[in-house]
Amino acid sequence: MKKFITILAAASLLFTVKPAKAQDREKIFNMYYSMGLGTGDMADFISKYSWRGFGMEWKTDVFDNASLGFGAEWNVFYEDMGYDTYTRDNLALSGEQFRYANMFPMTARFNYFKDNAAGMRFFGGAGIGTTYMIHDLDMNIYRWNRDTWQFLIAPEVGVSYDISPENTILLSVKYNLNFKTKDVPSQSYLAFNIGFGFR
């Protein structure tokens, strides 16, 4: 259901924008530091806030108030679960557990934006693509590992501010909504991004 709402919202934006003239089309390359917070099943695996991550994206204006682009991120989640006892039926296992999740979302992105006179650009939109993810669980000298790809829809809101004619500062919040696959439940998380843009 969420998928259809997002697609519908993106499609409706297409009908409210005017094509930009070729000479007015702004192209921008963003590089940003990306932090993350797992939600739902992802938070069940690692609930700790991630301070490790970065991303890049390239966007070009395709309409007077809309841009199209693509980008990729790498977010690393880690949690030391501490010493605990895991019980199942007549079995119990105690030890220290360390959990890792490496997330590589890759999306094509469409954004609706509004500029103001102070050099700020407010934008909102969504990306559609895929996430490659690697989950590791270390206990004792053993590592349990799984990797998979999940379909991704990533709504995003943010603002950029011109610090010079060529450069901007970027702030954005993105929700990486990864859809469950046969064996792996939905691994979704919020990403908080801060970085620079280069025209």
Partner: peptide
């Protein structure tokens, strides 16, 4: 940190 203790009955 690598020590584990398993039990079963």
């Amino acid at each position: 940190d690598l020590d584990v203790v398993g039990t079963a009955y």
